[in-house]
């Protein structure tokens, strides 16, 4: 499973790192460190990542491919 994080939409709500700390991390300003990139969701963390995707108030996270 791969997810992309939209650089323009991410405004640092930080919900992603709360729900999927093994997938998403925050930079010093509290923004998703993968903003503008696509991340490989590690095996076994798909549920967490999906929760994070749904919780993002900006809908900045989406499934890639």
């Amino acid at each position: 499973m791969r997810m992309k994080v939209d650089e323009l939409l991410c405004t640092g709500h930080g919900r992603c790192a709360k729900f999927a700390p093994g997938v998403f991390t925050l930079d010093d300003a509290g923004f998703n460190t993968a903003a503008g990139e696509t991340v490989d969701v590690p095996a076994g963390q798909e549920d967490d990542a999906t929760k994070a995707m749904k919780a993002c108030p900006e809908r900045a996270i989406s499934l890639a491919d």
């Binding site: 405004t11 729900f19 108030p57």
Partner: peptide, 20 residues
């Protein structure tokens, strides 16, 4: 159920700076 999607702290560039 942990996934909660809401706009209480605003959306877009003015997202509440005090939300955390």
């Amino acid at each position: 159920e942990p996934t909660v999607h809401h706009a209480t702290f605003g959306v877009g560039p003015h997202r509440c700076i005090g939300s955390h």
